[in-house]
């Protein structure tokens, strides 16, 4: 468990959070490599199925990163994403997986430092929680996902 390196899938809206990740890189900020970023056209496009499949295929944590409130290019995609994340957290609790493994964040494109901070915080949180209970019994599946 001491050497546990969580796999965290981060669905990042291409407008702000994905650019924030770029900004973090441009600023030469270090953040854990545990985050596997998936660029999406809008956080509102991240379906419940995408989140569940990430966990099913071996993710220990999932982040949905959206633009700040009022800044969504599609007006309310970020608000819809936040509602969906709350719904999936409840479903995860029903499954028996901690809802804290799913995180919703909102960032602007200029918040490179905040992106790096968030990546560190989320990685530490998941590291403390340990491997996803699904992976404990399906380690072979996780290897496939990697």
């Amino acid at each position: 468990m001491e050497n546990f390196e969580p796999i965290i899938v981060a669905f990042c809206c291409q407008y702000c959070p994905y650019t924030a990740a770029d900004t973090a890189g441009t600023q030469r900020l270090c953040y854990p490599a545990n985050l596997k970023i998936i660029r999406v056209p809008c956080a509102g496009k991240v379906d419940a199925m995408h989140i569940l499949k990430a966990f099913e295929k071996g993710a220990d944590g999932v982040v949905v990163a959206a633009c700040l409130e009022g800044d969504c290019h599609f007006e309310t995609g970020n608000i819809k994403a936040a509602r969906r994340v709350s719904y999936i957290k409840k479903l995860m609790e029903e499954i028996g997986v901690e809802g804290e493994r799913l995180e919703m964040v909102m960032l602007s494109a200029g918040m490179g430092d905040r992106f790096a901070e968030m990546a560190t915080e989320v990685t530490e949180k998941i590291r403390k929680l340990g491997p996803s209970p699904i992976n404990l019994n399906t380690s072979s599946q996780k290897q496939e996902a990697c």
Binding site: A48, M49, L52, F55, E56, L91, V97, I134, N137, T138
Partner: peptide
């Protein structure tokens, strides 16, 4: 169709947690 996908995934995970496929 969407709820079928979600429930299938949820059930698979719930059983995977118990070590059952």
């Amino acid at each position: 169709r969407k709820e079928v996908g979600l429930l299938a995934s949820a059930l698979k995970m719930a059983f995977a947690k118990e070590g059952k496929t």
